[in-house]
Design a protein around this nucleic acid. Structure first.
Lengths: 234, 234
DNA sequence: CACAAGGTTTAGGGAAGCCTAAACTTTTCT
DNA sequence: AGAAAAGTTTAGGCTTCCCTAAACCTTGTG
């Protein structure tokens, strides 16, 4: 009959990775996270995920409905956000204070996030001026777990003539980040959709005065804020 | 019959801690490190140490003569020095770049040293000007594993009238570090032995114009360089 | 020299995390 | 509905790293 131990205990590295993955999946899909999706995201066999799910549920961090998926408890969500904060502060610090190139901060942060103390992370954040987002534009959760999400849409969803500002790009694939940087598609860049092929065809953009073409798959990983949406509010 | 695998593989955190401990014990005592000493240093049962010894020997990092102790192989010594470099660079960086108090850098570095990449450590070292020692005066091994040890003796070994410069203090005990800082006994401080009680009695020192008394047990953890020794060479 | 004390190793066990293979549930397709 | 496909869980194994208890060397002492 062991349940919900570890009051404010520290979690293992793997456990933190699971919680992060579940958090992300919950955000993307509306519902609970599926075993298979967690397995794919972490590159781990589905059977192993079942095992960890049992352990996390015993610790009160997730709720598990067999064959239906898992959801974070408030406690689990808090733990996930703490890890995400760590990750994004570290990414920002590596880029700003230590000159890491933006396509490499993710991997290094992935290693460090499980070892860094909250104090260290807070000192890092303070040293670089408490940034609101990481180098890829993802919001950095506050110490209390609150996250301010800007209203954004996928670049891929824009039509011809639209004007927008790049808010955020997916941070996991280093090669993709390098390519986007070459195109000038960085958070903060102003882009204008010059032409849009029908359905899910490529987009022609004007970025920084240059015309660039970008496929829909890549464009799906770029989130932008449009002036109208910003004014209308979310 | 598996032996000496893992050519340049990365070691587990625990394994790195064992190698560090063995390195230190080899330095202090002349001979090989005893199971019990390793166990005590890492706060682990002696039986557990036997288990890890077997694993490290299989990986070619140490040589084990049953019931006689262990010695590092050149490969193991290199691995230990890499970890020690990581530890001391991180300590220095935390103190210099992030304002950590010197009694707290050790514990934080202990956590980080197993997760930080060589690139990160090198960037940290570069960012603070490639220091030669950590905040407690311990030398930072170079990337190639070379260490420059200054000739030092224990403060406790000085007689009345001796003048010396504090070179290094033991870094493990935070309370001790705070106390030494209060006395002004920091690396670089000039101390003069005003009086010395016979045998292992306390020392009266002049530090920074103030008279301080320090017991022999504490003084054994303070290493100093004397002008004479420096001139004569080690 | 024998024996007690102390240090070391083996035996056996446990938790975390991973794996593959097999069993089981749910969904989907005909 | 019934069967195939897809997804999930259980079963059984493995490695790392820790533990306690018991067996085993080595040493120092009477």
């Amino acid at each position: 009959m062991s349940a919900a131990r570890h009051p404010a205990d520290s979690l293992s590295g793997p456990a933190e990775d699971y919680l992060k993955a579940i958090y992300d999946l919950e955000q993307t899909r509306g519902a609970g996270a599926a075993t298979n999706d967690i397995a794919q995201r972490l590159d781990i066999a589905a059977a192993s995920v079942s095992g960890m799910i049992r352990r996390l549920a015993e610790h009160g961090l997730i709720e598990h409905e067999p064959y239906r998926g898992v959801r974070l408890t408030p406690q689990g969500r808090m733990a996930a956000l703490r890890t995400i904060r760590r990750h994004r502060v570290i990414e920002s610090y590596l880029a700003t204070a230590l000159g890491y190139p933006w396509d490499r901060v993710h991997d290094e942060a992935e290693l460090l996030e499980h070892a860094a103390s909250d104090e260290l992370v807070d000192r890092m954040a303070a040293a670089i001026g408490e940034p609101a987002t990481d180098p890829h534009g993802a919001p950095i959760p506050a110490r209390d777990g609150s996250v301010t999400e800007r209203p954004v849409i996928a670049l891929e969803a824009l039509g011809a003539g639209a004007v927008a500002v790049v808010a955020r790009v997916g941070d996991e694939d280093a090669a993709r980040l390098r390519y986007l940087a070459e195109l000038g598609i960085l958070p903060g860049a102003r882009v204008e959709v010059v032409n849009r092929a029908p359905f899910d065809g490529p987009l022609t953009l004007r970025v920084d005065g240059d015309e660039r073409t970008i496929g829909p798959a890549l464009a799906a990983h770029v989130l932008v804020a449009t002036p109208e949406r910003s004014l209308l509010g979310g």
